[in-house]
């Protein structure tokens, strides 16, 4: 039976979707979020692969159907962007200031790591694209000579962590304006965070989507300059 489960294509799919909806149902019953569905599902599937003996390739055979839909779903972030366009247009200075501050802080953090850990140039480059959406980040890491698989892992860590902690952290630091909340989430935690911002509200989702694009472009421009300076 175990052998059957470990070779079943549909098991990986069902495990991903089932654990996600289990967490969502628990949250709905409790009336507030107790378990982050993305984190819960990732941990269960990860444990099944690390400890349960399932091959990642077998898992992915089932899970790829979710992965394939991620591109059109990300494209659909244009919908809240379109609906909230007037509000965003009115707040261009806030969008620009927030994203520039976030990207600058991130780059400063990377430089700090460079000196603190005396990183090699490829290791430093690996960290540079960490706050941006996986596809841009991976490409950028490859192009500049970093380690793309570590960049990917760092980006995912950033995204999941950001998505989980965003609501309490924003509350704690009294970021109450929905637009500022969305910008904060999108700049720090890209699409994974944005999936959470969409749950917080329409304005948050739109601002977060815009922040992904702006932050991504700023990083694409800034990262090669930093990489050259550090190299």
């Amino acid at each position: 039976m175990n052998e059957f489960l470990l070779s079943s294509t549909w098991f990986g799919f069902l495990l991903s979707v089932g654990t996600f909806f289990l967490a969502r149902t628990v949250n709905r019953r409790c009336g507030k979020e107790r378990i982050n569905p993305l984190l819960f599902s990732t941990v269960v599937c990860g444990l099944e692969i690390l400890l349960g003996g399932m091959e990642y390739e077998v898992y992915y055979q089932g899970a790829q159907y979710l992965d394939v839909l991620l591109t059109p779903a990300t494209i659909c972030l244009a919908i809240p962007l379109y609906r909230q366009f007037e509000l965003l247009k009115k707040n261009i200075p806030a969008v620009a200031a927030g994203c520039v501050a976030g990207v600058a802080a991130h780059m400063a953090g990377c430089l700090l790591m460079l000196f603190l850990f005396s990183l090699e140039s490829p290791e430093f480059i690996t960290l540079l694209p960490k706050s941006i959406t996986t596809a841009i980040g991976k490409g950028l890491s490859e192009e500049l000579g970093g380690y793309p698989s570590i960049t990917m892992a760092t980006i995912m860590l950033t995204g999941i962590f950001g998505a989980v902690v965003a609501p309490p952290i924003l509350r704690l630091f009294r970021v109450t304006d929905p637009l500022a909340q969305g910008l904060a989430i999108g700049t720090s935690a890209h699409a994974a965070g944005t999936s959470r911002a969409v749950e917080l509200g329409e304005v948050q989702g739109a601002a977060s989507s815009l922040a992904i694009v702006v932050t991504g472009l700023l990083t694409v421009v800034a990262a090669p300059i930093l990489a050259a300076l550090a190299g």
Partner: peptide, 14 residues
């Protein structure tokens, strides 16, 4: 559904 669609990408972390 976007958080669900991100599950395979985040599992690839391992």
């Amino acid at each position: 559904l976007m958080p669900l669609l991100l599950v395979p990408a985040s599992v690839s972390f391992i």
